[in-house]
Amino acid sequence: MKFTGKVWKFGNDVDTDLIIPARYLNTSDPAELAKHCMEDADTTFAGKVQKGDIIVAGKNFGCGSSREHAPVAIKAAGVACVIAKDFARIFYRNSFNIGLPIFESEEASAKIAEGDVVEIDADKGVIKNNTKNETYTVKPIPPFMQELVAAGGLIAYGKTKFKIK
């Protein structure tokens, strides 16, 4: 799994209300949610994010409620993956479950700046910062999780992998 993209940088403890405010939870349509992605953290984000861009944030990304709408909104906005120092537990689960790849790297979280172009090689566990010409290590995603993301999420994965009657 490889990604190259331009970075949008966020701080610590970005909660699920910042990612997708509760006032938009009356829909579960990904395209609709994408329009409000990160709205309460940066009102202009949804308008400027391009397909393949990457979010880099600090600690405890996705804390707060268990709403699956949060990673859905990020994925539907076209974001390729999220890098953070670490993630809140249920956000972490939900991301893989809906097919949004996420990476934990303290180094990358600290050193990458907004606008940098970074290249992630998930198999090798490295992040290259093409703008700054730096390399950071990232915990590689095990094959199972990669399959999950490649399949498009847990349910899709389950349908191909297990006999579902």
């Binding site: 268990s66 699956e68 809906i98 999780m145 349910i155 389950g158």
Partner: peptide, 16 residues
């Protein structure tokens, strides 16, 4: 866990 996890386990008996 979340709802997708529960749905997946209802189908497969598995969770990650």
């Amino acid at each position: 866990v979340g709802s997708t996890d529960a749905a997946f386990a209802m189908m497969t008996g598995k969770a990650w």
